[in-house]
């Protein structure tokens, strides 16, 4: 009985300790970020590995998600004789939901896991400790550039995803299924609002970028410095950031579009 209670207590303590360490790390990263401005090349290098290398998966999945939306939307709308609204269906669902969420999930799988594995291995091979020995702050030198690279890349990736998706829906809807070209764009323009829909989508992807990169960097920095520990941390990154993205998406949607 007592051991059970002890186990429960230890789990809770571990959880809150990790939560606290995570927030302290975020605070350290943010307070150490001003040193990055004169050395912005560090961030650019990380934008390459985090953002540019994720472009392919974002482009391809965006195109196909848009095409599937076009196909399914058409099949449903044509029953009501409303296939002219296909552009609205495709663009609203992409800009509001699928663009930010799916690209954040892909980002967590493609870039978040890579970040965790890289930082975890740096820790396991004691590169981070070596930096500290040389009086180089690893938070400022290693973690902060990666964090800002993720925060910069995520909204751009989500915007590319949505734009490519709209074009994919156009290919299927107008090219294949014969929806009127003008109706596709004009209905879309009449019903998508710049601030309510597109800006909120950008805000969403910005929040997701912060959360996913934060989780990835924290898990890497907090990993048990063994090969098993790094692999577990990588798995946790993907699972936790996917759950966080989906949960946050509901909260953000309720806040933005609820009333």
């Amino acid at each position: 009985m007592l051991t059970m209670l002890q186990g429960l207590g230890r789990t809770a303590l571990d959880f809150f300790q990790r939560l606290g360490r995570g927030h302290l790390l975020l605070l350290q990263i943010l307070s150490g970020s001003h040193t990055l401005l004169p050395r912005f090349g560090l961030v650019i290098k990380q934008v390459f590995s985090v953002g540019v290398l994720s472009l392919l998966i974002i482009l391809v999945s965006g195109l196909f998600v848009g095409m599937v939306l076009g196909l399914q939307g058409y099949n449903t709308l044509v029953d009501f004789g409303a296939e002219e609204s296909l552009g609205v269906v495709v663009s609203l669902s992409l800009v509001r939901e699928l663009g930010p969420v799916v690209s954040a999930l892909l980002f967590a799988g493609r870039a978040g896991s890579a970040l965790t594995a890289e930082i975890g291995l740096m820790k396991a091979t004691e590169q981070l400790s070596a930096m500290e020995m040389m009086a180089v702050d690893p938070v400022r030198r290693v973690l902060a550039p990666r964090f800002w690279a993720g925060v910069i890349s995520m909204p751009l990736l989500a915007a590319i995803f949505s734009a490519v998706g709209v074009i994919g829906g156009y290919f299927v809807g107008v090219g294949l299924l014969g929806v009127d070209d003008g109706a596709y764009w004009s209905q879309m323009q009449a019903n998508v609002d710049l601030y309510k829909d597109i800006l909120n989508g950008v805000i969403k992807s910005f929040v997701f970028g912060i959360v996913v990169t934060w989780i990835a960097i924290f898990e890497g920095n907090d990993a048990v410095p063994t090969s098993e520990g790094v692999s577990r941390a990588t798995t946790r990154t993907v699972v936790h950031s996917s759950l966080a993205v989906l949960g946050l998406d509901f909260i953000l949607t309720a806040l933005m579009f609820g009333s």
Binding site: L55, A159, V166, Q189
Partner: peptide
Amino acid sequence: FVAAGMAALFMLAMQVS
């Protein structure tokens, strides 16, 4: 990459909304 992202945002703002 950044130019493509900006162009996508611009397209969403001008063409879609």
